[in-house]
Amino acid sequence: MSAETRETSYREAVREAIRDALRRDPRVFLMGEDVGRYGGCYAVTKGLYDEFGPERIRDTPLSESGFTGAGIGAAMGGMRPIVEIMTVNFSLLALDQIVNNAATIRHMSGGQLNVPVVIRMACGAGRQLAAQHSHSLEAWYAHIPGIKVVAPATLEDARGMLWTALEDPDPVVIFEHVMLYNRTAQLASDAGPVSIEGAAVRRAGGDLTLITYGGSLYKTLEAAEALAGEGIAAEVIDLRSLRPLDDATIMASVARTHRALIVDEGWRSGSLAAEISARIMEQAFWELDAPVGRVCSAEVPIPYPKHLEDAALPQVEGIVAAAKAVTGR
């Protein structure tokens, strides 16, 4: 257990996960726009083209539906493709393939066919990329039966979820928040596959439960730290998996703290936060000492100027204020 650690960025952790998968299994290949010679629009795949060649680090034309569908077809044909879509906004051009094909084929074929494809995409705001490159549409995907949706927030998950997703017989969509790529921390040099199921308690506390995922995890942890300074012990749950949701971990925590606040970079209406809130109401209503709170993005396409982008997104101060409101302090 006492393996060596080294300073690693989230980007490097994802790259190492891809490299590891390519080495483990000759059926694995990566395809997407500018993943090869360019090195990936977020530089995630830098160097892999030279290492693995153009067959396995496959540059595609700007044809999201075409190459995502090709990934689904290749998965049915016995390969283990990793499809990279530059941002969740572009994935809308591939929604037909993901929703109508990847998610349905096992069911429509009466269980005869599997689609073991993995689709990675960047999501989220914070880089002043405005209204067509900054969205958090994870909830849309989490709505769809037939696919699994994960959001690695930590280096361990960025490093470890990919291989497990590739081994899964069903389609898995991985969301990588753009503000996480530059984040660095110590990562064990022998870090390897981790489960893609279940939420994780990232900080223990008895006064309220903060539930979040992906890019909002660190803001939420920071808020928990600030709350601790004011005598409020917040527990922080990182959902990790957005479909299926780990109800048990959420309800167990709420049963201890009796108060819950959900932090979600998606828009409030029809959000994951709304879904989780409803589940708490259904499953833990009598445990609650206060209504469930939510901190979500403002209902506006993400604006370009920094001050407006900041104002549109969940921020630490807002999380702290909402947490206090839930605790009645």
Binding site: G66, G69, A70, G73, A74, G78, M79, Q97
Partner: peptide
């Protein structure tokens, strides 16, 4: 059509 492309891609790569 993209599925057919993918099935053929798998055959070619294998």
């Amino acid at each position: 059509l993209p599925l057919a492309v993918g099935l053929a891609l798998a055959d070619k790569m294998r």
